[in-house]
């Protein structure tokens, strides 16, 4: 590859300094063959980039996003006014692989931990959108269910980790587990609910105590995560 061709290429790409470009343009004026080659190369560039331009204008449909694993997670609906409080309906059908085979038989309630700092739980709660999976340090999988604001202003998230569910709230020091319900078993039809009445008493009690508002939709939740929960 000759130096002149590399310089021609750099000139076409605007990759020369003004002084280099001026010198090269003087060469173009003196050398008709070089000028013809420059015109030809520029035309080739223009044709190829123009011919490929429509490929980047084809729409990215929902089907393609789903195939690529980029579909928007299904948002949990907010409770209607004439319905029970949303936190009594949290085991709503979410469908799909997330729900399949999830074990949810309430047997006992675990004493809440003082903090949620261990094993990556805090990081998972901090950064994972609802219904996405996060792997904890011990190999278990955490799936945030949704995010809602407590009456005291803290953001709270219900989550599920393998065989138990929990609720944790965030203050300036980090995430603190407010309640956990352990040993959950499977339910029929792929829906998620708790056996024995369909509610987890300890988590219901925590929601009642915290006076959590309606859950955020997925867009608002993602914005909150992106802002590192700074909207307090």
């Amino acid at each position: 590859m000759s130096d002149i061709e590399e310089r021609l290429s750099a000139w076409l790409d605007g990759a020369m300094t003004p002084q280099e470009a001026a010198a090269f343009e003087a060469e173009l004026e003196r050398d008709p063959a070089l000028a013809a080659r420059a015109a030809s190369w520029r035309a080739n560039d223009s044709f190829i980039s123009g011919a490929l331009a429509p490929l980047a204008q084809e729409p990215i449909g929902d089907d393609l996003l789903a195939r690529l694993g980029l579909a928007e997670p299904e948002a949990l609906p907010s409770a209607a006014n004439d319905n029970p409080p949303w936190w009594r309906q949290r085991w709503l059908p979410v469908g799909g692989a997330l729900a399949a085979g999830l074990a949810l038989v309430l047997v006992m309630v675990q004493r809440p931990a003082d903090t949620a700092q261990d094993g990556g739980l805090s990081f998972a709660l901090e950064s994972t959108p609802a219904l996405q999976q996060a792997r904890l340090a011990d190999g278990r999988t955490l799936v945030p269910q949704f995010t809602a604001r407590a009456a005291d202003g803290r953001w709270c998230r219900e989550y599920r980790v393998d065989d138990h569910a929990g609720i944790a709230c965030r203050d300036a020091k980090g995430w603190k587990v407010e309640a956990e319900a352990k040993d959950l078993g499977p339910v029929a039809d792929g829906d998620i609910q708790l056996a024995g009445g369909g509610t987890a008493a300890e988590i219901d009690a925590a929601n009642a105590r915290l006076k959590t508002a309606d859950p955020l939709d997925s867009v608002a939740e993602r914005a909150l995560i992106a802002q590192q929960w700074g909207d307090r």
Binding site: L52, L55, A56, Q57, E58, I60, L64, L65, L68, G69, L70, A124, S127, T128, P129, Q132, Q133, A134, R135, R222, I225, A226
Partner: peptide, 28 residues
């Protein structure tokens, strides 16, 4: 997106935004 990105929601949005050009690059 699973567990790992520094901000998985924002990165997912950026990946989606890059898809048209990525598709063109891959076809090229």
């Amino acid at each position: 997106m699973t567990d790992s990105g520094p901000d998985s929601g924002a990165m997912r949005a950026e990946i989606i935004a890059a898809l048209p050009r990525l598709r063109r690059f891959c076809r090229g």
